[in-house]
Structure formats: C-alpha cells, structure tokens
Design a protein around this nucleic acid. Sequence first.
DNA 1: TTGACATATTCCTATATGGGAATATAATGT
DNA 2: ACATTATATTCCCATATAGGAATATGTCAA
Lengths: 119, 119
Amino acid sequence: MARAATTSDAFNAVAETRRREILNYLALQERPVGEIVAMLGLEQPSVSKHLRVLRDVGLVHVRRDGRQMLYRTNAEGIRPLHEWAGQFERFWQHQLARIKERAEEKIKKTDSIKSQEET
Amino acid sequence: MARAATTSDAFNAVAETRRREILNYLALQERPVGEIVAMLGLEQPSVSKHLRVLRDVGLVHVRRDGRQMLYRTNAEGIRPLHEWAGQFERFWQHQLARIKERAEEKIKKTDSIKSQEET
DNA sequence: TTGACATATTCCTATATGGGAATATAATGT
DNA sequence: ACATTATATTCCCATATAGGAATATGTCAA
C-alpha cells in the first residue's frame, strides 16, 4: 500500500507546509486565489491544487464572487487535530516538571560543591 | 517535487493513522516492539519502520533492555502541532457563536410566526 | 559456538503525490 | 461573438512512500 491520499483527512492535508500557510492566511478573512498566489509566490495552478485538497477535506469554504473565488479557512476542520494533540498536553507538562526538578537538583549540588570549595 | 518525506517533521510523521495509534499507545508507558505489534495487528517489520520514522522526527524515545527495545512517546514533539492548531481556536469559537446566534434568531422568528397564527 | 528470540533493514511494487507547462472552464465587458 | 480576466484541470515526471517477503543484526542462554 502506498501513502494515504492527502485528501484522506485533515492530518494528511496539513502535512504540507504550503497548505498550513494558506490556512493561516485565510483564517482572518476570505481571499481570492490571486492574493494567495501573490502571498505564497507559487504558480497559480499549484495554489489551485492546494486549495482543492483543502476543500476536499473541509478545511476551507469557498464562494464565488464574479470571476473570483473567495476562500476562507474553516477552523472547525482543524479541531480534531488540536484535540488529538491535546491528549498529550499532560505528558509534556510532566516531562517539563521533571526536567525542571532535575535542573534544580543540579543547582543544589553545584551549590554544595561550591561551599565545599570555599571550605 | 514529490511529497515531503514522512521524516520531514512531526506534521508529516503523524499524518499516518498507525503512527498516531502508536503514539497514543506509548504515551502512558514505554513498551517493547512486540507489544506494539500485538496491539496493532501489523507485521513486525512494518511496526519497526513506523517506529523508525517516529524516532527520526523525535516523537519517541528508545532504550535497549536486553534484547528488547523499549519505546516511549516524547510528548514534547507533539507540542508544535498542538500550538499550530491552537491558533485557530478563537476562530472556531467565533464560528460556533455565530451558529448559535442564528439558531436562536430562527427560534425567535418561529415563535413570532406562531403568535401570528394564534391571532 | 550454537540456537533461539527480538528487532531492524533491504528489496520489491503499486500508488500518490507537488510542481511545471499547457490547456480548459467560467464570468465580465464591449 | 470576442477578448480579457480569474481559476481549475490535465498531462508529465521525479520522488517517496507502506506493506509484504526475505534477510540481517543484536542479545542472551546453554
């Protein structure tokens, strides 16, 4: 089996840096394709293809305005990702706490060595 | 250019469902490869290859214990993902608020129609 | 050393890219 | 109808899989 399609789900879609950039750019307000092209410095067809992927997984909304297509990030689609990653929050907090503890113990030891030296 | 390597970063690495399952499984405690194999129902070489990818991007820690290799999730590696997704939290909150508003307005309208009918 | 167990790597193939180039589709103005 | 503008799609190719099969590596025990 080959790698899963980029259109399989949000996880695969946002694996691409350019698509994450697009989502960041379109979060605040909707924009026509031309502005996204200018913003990313990519060829227009490439941008259209990325937008297609984002549409297929429901990460952007589109509406037509004359000849323009206005795209906007659908933040809801990013929630599953945030929630999955959030499961690990308590673990990295634990890890950080342990790192802190060790660092403080190290300082204590250093201090006691120092006082020994002073003796 | 082809798709970015799965070992490019955490985003690409966790795009694969199996690898997310592995990270969930290894979050609570370290486990030998054999248990991961039993848990996922995949072939051992496939699991070893997924673990290799996770190691390369720093999403798991490993240590040897006799013939076994004990893997454990490195939650820190998942933070960038959580933080990127977290940028959109305020937007989906807005979106939900608007949906709620509209729903409430709809109910109001329905009520006023009802009272008209009653007249 | 030899055998058994645990894990990793290599080789293979079908599949899915992402970008460039060329072309198609859609909407507007004249 | 025709030219122009804005996007989308198709065709091409180099690259990177994920999994299966076979094999290699590493560790322990007798």
